[in-house]
């Protein structure tokens, strides 16, 4: 695991990005209409793809957090308080989601084996904090990659469309996505209690992520009534190879960033939830190990 983070992924990122960009800049043919300007695609498109990937990871982590950290959501159907059909339908959907999350969670446990000293209560388990840290890391990296993608997009747009910015559905949706995740990260800064922060930010992440497809459709609809701004990306086969290589390079870079940011976030969580200093007038070892694992 350590070697993967320290050597394999960084080297893969450098080699793949270097190779992909070299082929893209020197070997692949220039675009018939846009000329050499189009070569920014090999930077821009992988950035955008990986930003989407990071946001997807964030969404999955948020859903898994809410469903794993024991609470009401998963148990709606366990309490037959109301028998209205709407409630039963919702309970069914929730249970289905809980089941998926359970599978996701066990898969996650295989990928990132954690300490298993205390399984008495889900709350004491570190896996909740791991999911929360993944969510934080992926949102931040997604925001960075998405912003870089947007900047490269503007640089590309200026010579091709004549403007840095246009209200094209793709651009508009992405701007909304970036603002959504900015709000998410701001919320995280403004909540001190780690439990509340994790729960609330998961809710915000889920609401925001559900919104993105709706935004995409509504904006496209909204624009299509004014002008048809189609940007067909008919990609020459000779362009596919460098694009594919640089995309994998960017994926490696994303994973490197994610790994390091995740470890940082996890360290923050552990510091926040570390065993409090020995209480005044207290024997330091009076709290046995298992209750100190509360984190």
């Amino acid at each position: 695991m350590k070697r993967l983070m320290k050597w394999v992924l960084p080297v893969a990122a450098v080699v793949l990005l270097g190779a992909g960009w070299y082929v893209g800049l020197a070997v692949a043919p220039p675009d018939r209409e846009m000329g050499d300007v189009q070569r920014i695609m090999y930077v821009h498109v992988p950035l955008q793809w990986m930003a989407m990937m990071a946001m997807f990871i964030n969404f999955v982590a948020a859903v898994a957090y809410l469903l794993s950290s024991g609470g009401n959501v998963g148990t709606v159907s366990a309490k037959p308080r109301s028998s209205s059909p709407l409630v039963s339908l919702l309970a069914l959907v929730v249970n289905l989601m809980a089941w998926v999350a359970h599978i996701l969670k066990s898969g996650w446990g295989l990928l990132m084996p954690g300490s298993k000293e205390d399984e008495a209560r889900a709350k004491q388990d570190e896996s909740g904090w791991k999911l929360d840290s993944v969510a934080e890391a992926s949102a931040e990296i997604g925001l960075v990659l998405g912003t870089a993608g947007m900047i490269t997009g503007s640089i590309w747009g200026r010579p091709t469309w004549g403007v840095y910015w246009s209200w094209d559905p793709r651009l508009t949706s992405e701007a909304i996505m970036l603002v959504t995740y900015m709000g998410y990260l701001v919320l995280r800064r403004f909540v001190e209690d780690p439990d509340k922060r994790a729960t609330w930010s998961s809710a915000v992440a889920i609401l925001g992520a559900i919104n993105l497809p709706i935004v995409w459709f509504s904006v496209r609809w909204w624009r299509s009534l004014h002008q048809v701004q189609s940007s067909p990306r008919t990609v020459d086969p000779a362009m596919v190879l460098p694009l594919r290589i640089s995309a994998f390079g960017m994926l490696a870079l994303l994973l490197v960033f994610l790994g390091y940011r995740y470890r940082q976030a996890m360290a923050e969580r552990r510091a926040e939830m570390a065993l409090p200093d020995a209480l005044p007038g207290d024997v330091p070892s009076s709290l046995p190990q298992n209750s100190s694992k509360v984190a």
Partner: peptide
């Protein structure tokens, strides 16, 4: 946001992008 710090900024910041559609 009513339970967070800076609640007056937080609510519009979270709500506005969400209700765009």
């Amino acid at each position: 946001s009513s339970n967070a710090r800076a609640r007056d900024v937080l609510l519009p910041l979270l709500l506005f992008p969400l209700v765009i559609p």
